[in-house]
């Protein structure tokens, strides 16, 4: 097969052009490098992620961007008045329904890059994840955010 990973190849070409500037010569060179790199990737045989409703990706991106802005402000306020112990940090265990490895990885990246929540470890035996939350005000609310806001969407995207 010519191109085992079309998305990877495309993004490598884009990255090459961004770094070197757009000229026809660099376009050809970038395509060559990307095709050889995707062949090298194919010989490693990673799991191929299957995309279901990929058109929901912009919605996920918008939700995550909004949540990151919101929690940036919240965490900055907590830090600026720290010392008065205005927040209560705590651990939280959540059972997950998703099993797709790519979806779990995306969920981990989303939760960790949002300030205020950190992904500590995932146990694949009983499919639970241990999180640390900086301001664990209402445990049920956090549970609801993770299950309904992120996980449902991820399950539809990575069918």
């Amino acid at each position: 097969m010519m191109l085992p990973y079309p998305l990877l190849t495309l993004s490598l070409v884009l990255m090459w052009l961004l770094l070197n500037g757009f000229t026809p010569g660099h376009l050809v060179l970038g395509i060559l490098v990307a095709v050889f790199a995707s062949w090298a990737m194919a010989s490693l045989r990673p799991d191929k992620p299957r995309l279901g409703k990929w058109y929901l990706l912009p919605k996920l991106f918008r939700i995550v961007l909004y949540d990151i802005v919101k929690s940036n402000i919240a965490v900055a306020l907590i830090i600026l008045k720290a010392g008065r112990r205005s927040h209560n940090p705590g651990f939280l265990t959540v059972e997950l329904d998703i099993e797709n490895h790519t979806a779990i990885a995306v969920l981990a990246v989303v939760l960790t890059s949002t300030p205020g929540s950190a992904w500590l470890e995932y146990d694949s035996n009983d499919k639970t994840v241990l999180l640390h939350i900086l301001d664990l005000g209402n445990e049920a609310e956090w549970h609801d955010t993770i299950k309904n806001r992120y996980e449902k969407l991820l399950m539809e995207i990575f069918a």
Binding site: I68, V69, N72, V75, A76, I78, I79, L80, A82, G83, P89, F91, T112, S113, T114, P115, G116, S117, A118, H132, L134
Partner: peptide, 23 residues
Amino acid sequence: AIGFLRLPTFYERIHAPTLGTSW
């Protein structure tokens, strides 16, 4: 960085640098 210095436990401190790495 300030939060990273001021927060008392390691698991709380891990949240502070994500401010710098996100926005």
